[in-house]
Design a protein around this nucleic acid. Structure first.
Length: 198
DNA sequence: CGGCCGATCCACT
DNA sequence: GTGGATCGGCCGA
């Protein structure tokens, strides 16, 4: 079942980040389907979170996407090399987001290998936010895409999340501070990263 | 318009 | 453990 608008528009972005573990992230890129189970997430709590791009209510061409309704994809270029995929949460006007940092490969592994130019599944395949987008074929030019429908009307391309029969127990969830945000002072200490430890 | 820098990754030592 | 790659976005002038 595709995750609904109501799932994304709830107010607690940290709780949503936690709940996204075990959900299936799917893409159709140029007509080709690939998917994986989300194994690592980080919450970015909007205008009061110094680690967020929207800290201090900053509105720019890029961050504007974060102010859209929950269930929108916020994708941006990092270090000039990597597309990073986020799920926008909360209602329109409140710029919360969850960064997807890792997936367990599901369907379409041969195509994933082709995209990463590898011959077989390595130990950390699909781990790391730049790798998530690489294996699923997601590009930062797709930012703003609607995540609640399987065909978002952008030609053959679509991204969505599904609830699958993948059970996650609380005991399997590791909570830590976020990666790469040491510049953000106190916010760097927030326990906003969730890892599936299975 | 110029300069700085990033929610990273990988090869190499 | 470390450093280079690489370029759009953001800010200041």
């Amino acid at each position: 079942m595709v995750l609904s608008r109501e799932f994304y528009t709830r107010p607690d972005v940290v709780q949503i980040a936690r709940e996204l573990l075990g959900k299936q992230l799917c893409s159709i890129i140029r007509g080709k389907f690939t998917s994986g189970i989300i194994s690592e997430t980080e919450a970015y709590a909007g205008v009061t979170d110094r680690a967020s791009h929207a800290y201090g209510n900053r509105r720019t061409g890029r961050t504007e996407i974060m102010y859209k309704t929950g269930g929108t994809g916020y994708i941006y270029l990092c270090y000039g090399v990597h597309s990073l995929f986020n799920v926008v949460t909360n209602i329109e006007g409140i710029p919360h987001a969850v960064l997807i940092r890792g997936i367990i490969p599901g369907e379409g592994v041969p195509l994933m290998l082709q995209r990463t130019r590898k011959n077989n599944l390595t130990k950390n395949f699909g781990i790391g936010p730049g790798n998530v987008t690489k294996v699923l074929g997601i590009h930062f030019s797709m930012t703003g895409i609607d995540l609640t429908i399987k065909n978002a009307g952008t030609g053959n391309d679509a991204i969505w999340l599904e609830e699958k029969n993948y059970k996650v127990n609380d005991s399997e969830i590791l909570t830590t501070t976020r990666i790469g945000v040491q510049y953000s002072g106190e916010a760097a200490k927030f326990p906003y990263r969730f890892v599936l430890n299975k």
